[in-house]
Design a protein around this nucleic acid. Structure first.
Length: 211
DNA sequence: CCCCAGGCGTCCA
DNA sequence: TGGACGCATGGG
């Protein structure tokens, strides 16, 4: 069983996921920070609250306390206010707040730069690269680790880079494929793996053994 | 009442 | 350098 065959199976089961949900590149970046360990439902409420300020400068111009109240529904609002503002400052200082300028940089340079920003870890960074900037990098999240370690593709305590390497060295370097695959994994996780320490029930890949 | 969510930085061994 | 812990709202 190859990772591509798993993909085909998931796609046949669930179809197109249309990620990232209806959004401009900048909104995707904001959403990537707000969704850290948080349900997307809560993030949507926060994004709705800031819909009139969805440019780096407008959002950064909001007083910190005001921003904090607007993103409150997304949880962890104190840390997320700091993280959001540090990222906005980075966008403004480095790219003059222009996503177009940002997109000119290579994947490697962008990744290196973004990971220096407080509040941008590997998953958030890669989500921004893939979904906002359309760069070919595979996003690894808790579902990816949980589901595929259960199927012995890698150990539960493999590092982020190791897991990412498994996917990227076994799949074509394709933005659309990476986009859809990660979205399908999240869909599978939400649908079938409700509890952290239980095996998925009805998981469509449970009967397969990886080579 | 419980558990969980599309993580991250800090702290401490 | 790696594992525990705090962060917080909202849904099931």
């Amino acid at each position: 069983m190859t990772l591509m065959e798993i993909y085909d199976m998931l796609f046949n089961e669930y179809g197109e996921q249309h990620w990232w949900p209806g959004a401009s590149p900048f909104e995707i970046m904001v959403g990537a920070i707000l969704t850290q360990n948080t349900g997307w439902r809560n993030v949507e409420k926060a994004i709705l609250n800031i819909k009139d300020y969805l440019t780096p400068r407008k959002l950064y111009s909001l007083p910190e306390n005001r921003l904090r109240e607007l993103i409150r529904p997304s949880g962890f609002f104190n840390v997320k206010t700091k993280r959001l503002r540090s990222f906005l400052k980075f966008l403004i200082d480095t790219y003059d707040g222009e996503i177009k300028i940002m997109k000119r940089q290579s994947l490697e340079t962008l990744r290196e730069n973004m990971l220096k920003v407080k509040g941008i870890g590997e998953e958030t960074c890669d989500s921004i690269l893939l979904y906002a900037l359309n760069k070919p990098i595979f996003v690894v999240d808790a579902y990816t680790r949980r589901i595929f370690s259960r199927h012995k593709v890698f150990s539960i305590d493999a590092t982020y880079k190791e897991i990412q390497g498994v996917f990227m060295s076994n799949l074509e370097r394709d933005v659309s494929l990476y986009n859809e695959y990660h979205a399908l994994i999240v869909r599978l996780g939400k649908e079938r793996c409700k509890r952290k320490n239980l095996l998925c029930e009805g998981c469509p890949i449970k009967n397969f053994v990886f080579s």
